[in-house]
Design a protein around this nucleic acid. Structure first.
Lengths: 357, 357
DNA sequence: CTGAAAGCGCTTACAG
DNA sequence: CTGAAAGCGCTTACAG
């Protein structure tokens, strides 16, 4: 004998009563409940998850799918760790378990997700690394699984998502650079990638248009999502005809490579080239000159994501909040030295002077 | 009707036969199996995980517990993402699922783990962030749960662990620095933390002893596990009486803060102070002067961990390998410029010259 | 307040 | 090769 049956027989009561005592049902004698709780504690008993889930028709756990492929995993750094903690802080209060599901490099994200969905391993999902066209969203909607997407997609409609406010970041960056006299502003945009890159690109175009500046495809630099990507794109950036005087990086860690290559070339960020990076990151804090970037709370983002999930779970709805959440997560400018100069009108071109020809 | 019963009734056969067909049992008519497979595919059917686990008495999933607290999470960077991918590459071949279980900052790791263990949510566990005394190991051994520890502990005995070869790294670092004429070699060791820090400290002492060098507690700098920790400890490092000429960093990212502070002080790593960092990391590659560190494959480490888990799972043992794996994962020196100088005998002291008094 | 019993959706000896 | 049935360990109406 094992499990609840063993507990019950030791106590000389029925498994039903044990179950009710353990689950905090009100119709249990106080003394009985105390005995049950004590015995469970003493014997290290906890209900078997599979049996419990089967009986209750719910798993009480939320899946959080992340991708391990280099393109998005490099982006992970401490990003997801911070978000997990925020998510957990909410879920724990509701007795829900967070299961992080890492999709391997060589697996198809759609099929990876499908397994968990079809097998009903989780009650709800959080997905990330959203693609422009992302069939995972169609799948989740078709199956009626509650989910929140950390990132937007053009797939589906009326689903909950929370995404970093790329538009805000790009707009503020471009406004700031234009105000400093820049006209030739480059951006780094990985060619293939998550929808985030598309949004970044589109925001860039519209921000330029708002300022009456022409869109020059040559200023959109294809770059790998990594420190190394930042290093490797530097020469291409500087080789663009009518050399750009500023660059906005889609991924913060690219700044490390960019800075290094600029230094090797004798070009000084913040004097010869304005640089704005994306998200404030501990590893960036020690760059010199300090990098202008945008900060946000990973923890709070996680909290918001978890709350958006709860809003879809019957029995966990805290407030009469709308079940569908769609929001861009605000990011706040953290001015640094890397773009702290104004371009004199007459020299607004070819201000970048490499040490050697 | 739903699930396998629905599938069976649509096909006009029993659920038993459907189950056998789906599970690849040999005693099923080929045509029947084909019909079942086709229907399952078409209807997007997959067996309910809870019911299946309950019936089989196994979950076919492996938990990987990580901790989100700042001390270890900062260390996580891309470390765990790389390891997960290696683990997955092995588990997928065995039809096992990897569930990452992130222990929240404000939760007790022991109780967090206990829930999953007592509820039989997973068939085996991988734990990390091992403490010197770590009751999780006692718990897992007492319950007879197969597990592998990514890191050693003084708790328990005869369990499987794989740990980075701290001893090797420290020995090689000290040998190298001593060969370059250094006698006053500092190390950064967080005061409270995982067992890793204890091992680092102990290795340092024994390496010094091997060279007949005295152990000076003042050379053991208490440092936070972060980039900022590296920045903040720099002044204390330089203020140690009979100033050290070299430092070995326990956590690679500390180098970012250290470099920055040294630069502010006009002190040049690799000329005025020898620096050796721990693990090779993309973010370090762009430091100038380049940092001497140790490289390893996160993916291969993950593979080894997964194989150590499989060795304990009946039915998954690939080779007649010993069930208990205990190994230090080798790390290979990647020489950089940060320690590429030899101390002249006569100036082996007070070689560090700050710009200002 | 408690017990007996059905049921959650599977898998698997056991017959045939 | 297939079906009927028991059983996995819980939870929860339903009686009493």
């Amino acid at each position: 004998m094992k499990g609840i049956a063993k507990l019950a027989s030791e106590l000389g009561i029925s498994t039903g009563t044990v179950s009710r005592a353990l689950n905090g049902k009100s119709d249990v004698n106080a003394a009985t409940r105390a005995r049950v709780l004590e015995a469970a504690q003493r014997m290290g008993y906890a209900p078997n998850a599979s049996a419990r889930n089967l009986a209750k028709g719910a798993t009480n756990s939320i899946g959080f799918m992340i991708e391990l492929n280099p393109e998005t995993a490099s982006n992970s750094d401490n990003f997801f760790m911070g978000v997990f903690d925020g998510v957990q802080s909410v879920l724990m209060q509701h007795g829900l378990e967070l299961l992080v599901l890492p999709c391997p490099t060589d697996a198809d994200p759609y099929h990876y997700l499908q397994r968990f969905v079809a097998r009903e391993t989780v009650d709800a999902m959080i997905i990330s690394a959203t693609q422009r066209i992302d069939h995972r969203i169609d799948l989740l909607q078709a199956r009626g699984i509650p989910f929140v997407s950390l990132g937007r997609s053009e797939s589906g409609a009326g689903y909950s998502w929370i995404d970093l406010d790329v538009e805000g970041v790009v707009n503020e960056s471009i406004d700031r650079l234009v105000a400093h006299g820049h006209r030739r502003i480059a951006v780094t945009v990985p060619r293939r990638g998550i929808n985030f890159a598309e949004l970044f690109h589109a925001s860039y175009r519209s921000a330029l248009a708002r300022h009456g500046l022409p869109y020059d495809p040559a200023l959109v630099i294809d770059t790998a999502w990594s420190e190394l990507g930042g290093y490797e794109m530097t020469d291409r950036l500087l080789a663009v005809p009518d050399r750009p005087t500023a660059v906005v990086l889609i991924y913060e860690m690219m700044a490390l490579g960019l800075y290094r290559r600029l230094m090797e070339l004798g070009i000084q960020p913040g004097r010869d080239l304005a640089v704005i990076t994306f998200r404030d990151e501990p590893a960036l804090r020690f760059l010199s000159p300090s990098a202008t970037c945008f900060r946000m709370s990973l923890h709070d983002l996680g909290v918001a994501v978890a709350e958006a999930v709860l809003a879809q779970l019957p029995g966990h709805r805290t407030s009469p909040a709308a079940p569908v959440v769609q929001m861009r997560w605000p990011m706040v400018l953290r001015p640094g030295e890397s773009d702290a100069f104004t371009l004199p009108p007459e020299t607004s071109r070819s201000r970048v002077k490499p040490r050697s020809a």
